[in-house]
């Protein structure tokens, strides 16, 4: 068995430049969680189905379990921690809280990243459009109804601000 191959990766995470030597086989999700301690990104399936690990890579949402950390070299990554700090998802977070659109909370970071992406491209999505967008993210607790309500509320409040 060959020895553990490593690589130096340099990237921007939530606006800060980081550089680490990591095993080449380490996923971006594991890198964020365990090398950087950004445990808000969750790993629910490690095969790209559940959406709990959804993050933003160079502005587009991706599954961080389906990327190697090595592939993010030179990229800009945003996680739920960064989106929280910047205030970008504050309206969504407020709506999720007020509507109890989360129970165990494990899917929530990925759900928020997906919802924020929807709201960037669709000003006032219909409930069906919201359901379509979040169908990429598994939630086992809520049954989705409250999440759809919360995203709808956040979209409405946002357009109201304009």
């Amino acid at each position: 068995m060959s020895s553990e191959a490593e690589i130096l990766v340099r990237l921007t995470v939530n606006g800060a430049v980081v550089a680490r030597h990591v095993p080449v086989r380490r996923s971006l999700a594991d890198f964020l969680r365990h090398d950087l301690g950004l445990t808000g990104t969750h790993v629910g399936c490690e095969h790209g189905v559940c959406g709990a690990c959804t993050i933003r890579l160079d502005g587009e949402i991706v599954r961080s379990c389906l990327l190697l950390a090595a592939q993010a070299d030179g990229a800009a990554v945003e996680t739920v921690e960064g989106l929280t700090e910047s205030g970008e998802i504050a309206a969504l977070q407020q709506a999720f809280l007020a509507r109890n659109a989360l129970q165990c909370g494990f899917c929530t970071p990925g759900m928020l990243v997906t919802a924020a992406d929807l709201l960037r491209t669709t000003t006032t999505p219909t409930r069906e459009e919201i359901r379509g967008a979040i169908s990429a993210n598994y939630c086992r607790c809520t049954g989705y109804h409250a999440i759809v309500d919360a995203i709808e509320t956040a979209a409405t409040s946002r357009t109201g601000d304009r």
Binding site: E46, G48, L66, L67, Q71
Partner: peptide
Amino acid sequence: GQSLMPLMAMRLTRPEELIDIN
């Protein structure tokens, strides 16, 4: 990598060399 990464994670495929063309 949307299909290859899961196959590798489950060790259903085990390439010795991975050529990233991205």
